[in-house]
Each structure stands twice: as structure tokens, then as C-alpha cells.
């Protein structure tokens, strides 16, 4: 029997990594830094989670480690794009390559296995059968909207993504806010990683979810809540595969194809339903102080 409640809960969990990832994108791009590196940050985060959880026998340490791993890469992305003014997409791509090698190398060094870790039993607690982290991202999106609209930090971060020269002329430390945006992006990528599959790390296990997060962010027109809702659209599409045997029109669709549903859906959405998006005006633009 198709259990609608179970489907809804399961979908909430499946959506979590993409939803946190989409928020990660929102923080970075609101500050004007295009962040393709979310994929690599999530991948590193997944490894660090398992490492931290096993080493300290605690899922909380797992989450902290996941955040640490993702943040380290986000700082690297910041150094390349903000301090050294490298093209954002180029830096992000290089970091993704780095993450793929780095996680394998660390897994080999720490666990003696290159493409997977041992099973980790220190996973976040479950509430109604799903990862407890899956209950927070909608609230986090609302909190983010509040931060952007109502706090000094949010106002300044937005100004750096829209017109960094203007912000600079008013004494706002543009470089610092851009770093803050990217680093927060890393924190959220760490949460995305913690909500993905904390039982074990497997090489390249993020399988493009970081990029899917960016698609959700674009579809949500850079608005935190809409980005999360778009992520949930993709997440529920992915959830269908667990239920395909119970859903009449999916029974005969091979499972290999159902796997690609969220990606196909993302393409369909981008092709057919994407209205005019308004990215921050200086998103991806290299900011230089006048004299450099």
C-alpha cells in the first residue's frame, strides 16, 4: 500500500541535502560569489562527518566535522575568488576536483580504504523515522529571509552582491562580507552533508546534488524560501523511486530511469517554467578596490 504519510516524511528527508545546499548557494551568491564548489564542499563534508563521528563516537562531532571540512574548502574558494580574483566558476571547478581526490586520499590514510569508509553507527537521531536535520531547513530559510531583510549583516551582505563598489564607498568591508557569505555557504554545505547519508561515506556519493542545489537556487530566483521549495520539488521527485512499486503509473518504469527523475525534472523546470530570474547584480563579478 502507498502510505502517504511515510512518503511525505521520506521526501522531507530526501530533500534535505539539496535544500541545505540551495541555502548554501543563496548565502554565497547573495554576497556575489558564484559557488559551483558546493558539490565538493558537500562531498568533503560527507567524509568529514563519518570521520568525526567515528573518531569521537558522537554524531554531533560528525556534524561539526562536516561543517569544518566544508568550511575549509569554502575558505579556499574565498581566497581564490575574493583575494586572488580568480573566475568563480574556474575556482569552483578546481575545488570540486580537489575534493574528489582529497576525500579518497583521506579515506585511504584514515580508514585504509579508498572508495568507502566503514559503517558509522553514530548518526543523527531520528524523529518519526527520519534524520532530525530534515526538520530544520524550512525554518532556516525563513530565518535567512529575516537575516537578509532585518539585520545589519544581511543588508551589508546583499549590498556586496549588488554593488560592492557602492558598499565599499560607505565604509563596508566588502572583502570581509564576501568571505562571510562564502563561509556561511560552507557551514550550510556541511549541514547538507550531514543530512545526506551519515551511515557511511562512499566516493562521489553526492552524485551531483551540489549542482542540483544550484538549480534549485536559480529556480527559486535566489530567494531562500523559494529555493528550498524548489529543492523539495526535486527531493520528492527522487523519493518516487522508493515508492515506484506502489504507484500505478510508475510500476513499469525501470528503476534506472526513475533515479534520474530529479535531474530530468530540473531540466524540464529550467526549460519550461523558468521565468525571468534576477540574480544579484554583481553576482560572479570580480570586486577590486579602486587602486589595485
Amino acid at each position: 500500500m502507498f502510505n502517504i504519510w511515510y512518503f511525505l516524511l521520506r521526501g522531507l528527508q530526501t530533500s534535505a541535502p539539496v535544500a541545505y545546499g540551495a541555502l548554501a548557494g543563496v548565502y554565497s551568491e547573495t554576497g556575489g560569489i558564484v559557488n559551483i564548489a558546493i558539490e565538493g564542499m558537500m562531498l568533503t563534508g560527507t567524509f568529514f562527518f563519518v570521520w568525526g563521528a567515528i573518531a569521537f563516537k558522537s554524531w554531533i562531532m560528525g556534524v561539526l566535522f562536516a561543517i569544518l571540512g566544508a568550511v575549509l574548502l569554502s575558505i579556499l574558494h574565498g581566497i581564490a575568488t575574493i583575494t586572488f580574483k580568480v573566475n568563480h566558476v574556474v575556482s569552483g571547478t578546481a575545488i570540486n576536483l580537489l575534493a574528489m581526490g582529497l576525500t579518497r586520499f583521506m579515506s585511504m590514510q584514515i580508514f585504509g580504504m579508498e572508495t568507502q569508509t566503514p559503517v558509522n553507527s553514530y548518526i543523527p537521531p531520528r524523529l518519526f523515522g527520519i534524520n532530525i536535520l530534515a526538520y530544520f531547513y524550512i525554518a532556516l530559510a525563513l530565518l535567512t529571509i529575516w537575516i537578509f531583510r532585518r539585520t545589519r549583516f544581511g543588508l551589508r551582505l546583499r549590498s556586496c552582491g549588488e554593488n560592492p563598489w557602492g558598499a565599499d564607498s560607505l565604509g563596508v568591508n566588502v572583502y570581509a562580507y564576501k568571505y562571510a557569505g562564502v563561509i556561511l555557504s560552507g557551514v550550510l554545505a556541511g549541514l547538507a552533508a550531514s543530512s545526506l547519508y551519515p551511515n557511511q561515506w562512499i566516493a562521489e556519493m553526492t552524485a551531483g546534488r551540489g549542482y542540483l542545489s544550484l538549480a534549485a537556487m536559480i529556480f527559486g530566483n535566489y530567494n531562500p524560501l523559494n529555493a528550498v521549495l524548489a529543492a523539495m520539488l526535486f527531493g520528492y521527485a527522487e523519493t518516487l523511486r522508493y515508492f515506484s512499486a506502489q504507484i500505478p503509473f510508475l510500476v513499469n518504469v525501470p528503476s534506472t530511469l526513475i533515479q534520474s527523475f530529479p535531474y530530468v525534472l530540473a531540466l524540464v523546470v529550467l526549460a519550461g517554467f523558468l521565468g525571468k530570474t534576477r540574480p544579484p547584480k554583481a553576482d560572479g563579478v570580480i570586486f577590486e578596490k579602486g587602486e589595485d
Binding site: L76, A80, F84, K85, V86, N87, V90, S91, T93, A94, I95, N96, L97, L98, A99, M100, G101, L102, R104, F105, S107, M108, Q109, E114, D292
Partner: peptide, 26 residues
Amino acid sequence: VPNSLIGAISGLMILSVVVIDQLLRR
């Protein structure tokens, strides 16, 4: 030394190439 070190190093190499490239161009 595991094989995967090379993977990580290639990523680092690309990152340092683009950073150095940027500095030299300036």
C-alpha cells in the same frame, strides 16, 4: 603513498595555476 594523492594534487595544481595566472596577468 596512495594513488588518490595524485588526484588531490591535480586539483590543487589547477587551483594554483589559475591563481598564479591571475597574479602574473595583473
